[in-house]
Design a protein around this nucleic acid. Structure first.
Length: 221
DNA sequence: CTCCCGATAT
DNA sequence: ATATCAGGAG
């Protein structure tokens, strides 16, 4: 008798969510962290800003040289708009991203002694930093429990039937209610990797997905 | 909600 | 040709 996803009770959904956590843990035994290359919290914030609507591979190619030239908030604050645009152009949205990163450098110098702050409240006030980037930095650099809702988290969570919502903040709430807090950070990292390589947008590879036994969308997309 | 925007896979 | 890629601001 197949699992009835349609009439799943909240209790059953919670139990299934824990099973998903467990299967992901088995598939990616050690916490894979982020695939964005970085050395410092500042690096990660800049990489995250650059990564909007662009592949992580391209961002890592750009930052490999970028992070050699820019190593402090002051470096970014003093960057020339046109020169910086040329360096990051292939990331797309390059005018906005450049504006935000230069303003980020200035804001860090003005309000935080040039350092990246460690709270959600302060992070989301920074230019170019929204909730997704803030959660990424909080989880990766500061060990603050949180779920990073990016394009992969949105898509995969919907396919898994863990949320009916479309708004990232609602999805985050739903997931936080289904997944044990101690698992939030590694869950984010693992699910995003799964989304990048297996549960891809166009033709998800359900046959090779470790979650195909607990996913209402398996083999139906 | 729209706009920002280049690169790549399909 | 078009969908999609580790979003955020106005």
């Amino acid at each position: 008798m197949p699992y009835d996803y349609e009439n799943e009770t909240p209790e059953q959904k919670k139990k299934r969510a824990r099973e998903i956590v467990k299967l992901l843990k088995k598939r990616y035994s050690s916490d894979p962290g982020t695939e964005l290359h970085y050395k410092t919290p500042l690096d990660l914030v800049v990489a995250a800003i650059l990564s909007a609507q662009c592949t992580e591979v391209r961002i890592n190619a750009i930052t490999e040289t970028l992070f050699r030239k820019y190593t402090s908030a002051k470096d970014y604050a003093q960057a020339k708009q046109g020169e910086f645009e040329a360096e990051i152009k292939s990331a797309g949205f390059y005018r906005n991203k450049t504006r935000n990163i230069i303003a980020l450098g200035a804001a860090l110098l003005r309000d935080h002694g040039g350092e990246i702050p460690g709270s959600m409240e302060e992070l989301v006030k920074l230019p170019g930093v929204g909730r997704k980037t803030a959660n990424l930095v909080l989880t990766i650099c500061f060990g603050v429990p949180g779920i990073v809702v990016d394009t992969h988290m949105i898509r995969v969570s919907g396919r898994l039937g863990l949320t009916e919502n479309k708004a990232p903040e609602k999805i985050e709430q739903d997931l936080c209610g289904l997944i044990p807090k101690k698992d939030w950070i590694a869950y984010s990292n693992r699910l995003i990797i799964l989304g990048r390589y297996t549960c891809v947008a166009r033709h998800p590879k359900c046959a090779e997905c470790v979650l195909n036994g607990v996913c209402p969308s398996a083999f139906t997309i």
